[in-house]
C-alpha cells in the first residue's frame, strides 16, 4: 500500500509517512487548515451574534488587552494582570455573566503569559512590528500551536454549543454551571427576592 495512491496531504507526525518515498506533500499549515476554517464559519457568525464582546476583544493587541503601553515593564504587566483578574475572574463575575467573564479572563491570561515571558514577548513584538496586528493569530508562531485563526473558530464553535448546553442546564440545575462565588450571590439574590 502506498500512501501516494490517495494523493492526499498527510498531517501525521509519523515518520513512516515520509519515508515511503512517495509524493507526499509536506504539511503546509495554511493549505491544510483552510478547509477547517471554512467549515466553522457559520458557527462563528452565530457565536458572534450572541456575544458581541468576543468581536471587540479579538482585534486588540495583548498590550491593549492588559491596558499597558508597549514599553510596559514586567512589574507593570504583573500589576495590570492582577488588576484585570480582580475585574474579570469568573469568581468575581455577576451570576449572569460567567461565560463572558471566563472568556475575558482567559484572554487576559493569554496576554499575560505571553508578555510576562521575555522570549515570547520579543517574538510577539517582532510579529506585531511586521504588521500582524491580530494578537491571536500572531501568537501561534512561537507557541507551537495550531493556527490561531482556526483555534478561535473552533472555540466559537464549541462555545456556542456550550452556551446552548448551559441554557438548557439552567433549568434543571440553575446553579451547577456558575462559579461558587456567583452561586452564593445568586442564592442571596433569590433569598432577598423571596422576601
Amino acid at each position: 500500500m502506498r500512501c501516494s495512491s490517495y494523493g492526499l496531504v498527510i498531517p501525521g507526525s509519523d515518520s513512516r509517512f515520509f519515508s515511503t518515498g512517495t509524493s507526499v506533500v509536506p504539511p503546509d499549515p495554511s493549505r491544510r487548515l483552510c478547509p477547517t476554517r471554512v467549515s466553522f464559519v457559520s458557527f462563528k457568525i452565530k457565536a458572534n451574534f450572541s456575544d458581541a464582546c468576543v468581536k471587540d476583544l479579538t482585534g486588540m493587541t495583548f498590550y491593549q488587552l492588559l491596558g499597558i503601553p508597549e514599553s510596559g515593564t514586567l512589574p507593570e504587566i504583573k500589576h495590570a494582570y492582577k488588576q484585570l483578574a480582580r475585574k474579570y475572574h469568573p469568581d468575581v463575575s455577576p451570576p449572569d455573566r460567567i461565560e463572558e467573564y471566563t472568556r475575558r479572563f482567559i484572554r487576559v491570561q493569554e496576554a499575560y503569559e505571553t508578555l510576562s515571558d521575555p522570549r515570547r514577548r520579543a517574538l510577539y513584538d517582532r510579529d506585531m512590528s511586521k504588521g500582524l496586528q491580530l494578537a491571536f493569530s500572531a501568537r501561534r508562531r512561537y507557541q507551537n500551536d495550531m493556527e490561531m485563526e482556526e483555534r478561535s473558530e473552533w472555540k466559537n464553535r464549541w462555545q456556542s454549543q456550550l452556551s446552548e448546553l448551559k441554557r438548557r442546564s439552567m433549568y434543571k440545575d440553575a446553579r451547577g454551571n456558575m462559579s461558587w462565588g456567583a452561586q452564593m450571590r445568586k442564592q442571596k439574590e433569590d433569598l432577598s427576592e423571596e422576601l
Binding site: 469568573p90 464549541w158 452561586q183
Partner: peptide, 14 residues
C-alpha cells in the same frame, strides 16, 4: 492520517 480529530478540553469557572 487524513481525518482531523480535534479534541478540546475545557475547565469552566466551577
Amino acid at each position: 492520517g487524513v481525518p482531523e480529530i480535534n479534541v478540546c478540553m475545557d475547565i469552566d469557572a466551577s
